[in-house]
């Protein structure tokens, strides 16, 4: 390769070969980069689709549960309630025809049993579908729940709220009511609480529901660690409803003793009434 022409030819060949190899290498890198981006985007879309499907399934299950509750509540009120009222009327009339003292006493007891049953049916029917929620909204419904718990004299309970709650979508109102109801139930049934506090706060599109008790409490890590199957029905219901609303629920120790459950919702993506 002594001649300058030979050297130039060699240089050209060398450069062509090197540039060819570089072109191949760069194309490969670009191919991997673009392909992986496309795969990632497809995977994310699939994930979003799955999550949206699961959300819809969850919503459908909760809707079905609510519809069934409504049907049972209406049946209890309209059919069982009506028959019981009729039975009470008959028992009252039978009282007039009773000849002896023992018969009248038995009739009086029967009327008392029927009254108790009517009250129980009303209570169960209201628990299944609180009419206050539909008619007067979330605040009044929680007020009613609190009044009922307070009347039992088992526990001290208070409810405070801040913000505007009149324009909430009915499904959010119902979910929040059920969550509050379940958390209060948990505090009463499992935690043996002496005092319960409920706080509801709305700041523009951010809504927070807090339920605090001074009961025996539980280990927060245990709740997080437990699988869906291991959690009780109550906790499962709470988590399903929070998940349906795209919200977040957290449990903290309520020092010096007890539990604080906080539900946080972002309402910006939700349509208001």
């Amino acid at each position: 390769m002594g001649q300058p022409t030979e050297e130039i030819n060699f240089l050209l060949l060398f450069l062509t070969g090197t540039l060819g190899l570089l072109f191949l290498a760069s194309t490969l890198i670009l191919f991997v980069f673009i392909n992986q981006k496309r795969m990632l985007s497809q995977r994310n879309k699939l994930q979003a689709l799955k999550s949206s499907y699961q959300q819809e399934m969850l919503k459908a299950a909760i809707d079905a549960q609510e519809k069934e509750r409504k049907r049972i509540a209406e049946d209890l009120h309209d059919e069982v309630g009506a028959v019981l009222s009729l039975a009470k009327l008959n028992a009252n009339r039978a009282n007039e025809y009773s000849a002896n003292e023992e018969g009248r006493r038995l009739n009086k007891d029967t009327i008392q049993f029927i009254d108790d049953t009517i009250n129980n049916v009303r209570r169960i029917s209201k628990d299944l579908l609180p009419p206050t929620l539909e008619e007067f909204g979330l605040i009044k419904a929680i007020d009613e729940l609190v009044a009922k718990v307070r009347a039992s004299n088992i526990v001290r309970i208070k409810f405070e709220y801040r913000g505007e709650f009149n324009n909430l979508y009915p499904e959010i109102e119902l979910a929040l009511y059920r969550i509050a109801q379940e958390l209060v139930n948990n505090a009463l049934k499992h935690a043996d609480a002496g005092e319960i506090e409920i706080y509801l706060e709305r700041n523009e599109n951010h809504l927070t529901l807090k339920v605090l008790d001074d009961g025996s409490g539980f280990k927060v890590e245990e709740i997080d660690r437990k699988s869906t199957f291991e959690k009780g029905i109550g906790l499962k219901n709470i988590h399903s409803r929070v998940s349906m609303l795209d919200g977040e629920i957290n449990y903290f120790p309520n020092l010096p003793k007890g539990t604080a459950a906080t539900v946080e919702l972002d309402l910006s993506t939700r349509i208001h009434k």
Partner: peptide, 18 residues
């Protein structure tokens, strides 16, 4: 590691002829 491999591929593929 993607950038590391990119660096190695560009250098070694490009220098192979040399």
């Amino acid at each position: 590691m993607f950038w590391f491999n990119g660096g190695l591929l560009v250098y070694f593929a490009g220098s192979l002829l040399f």
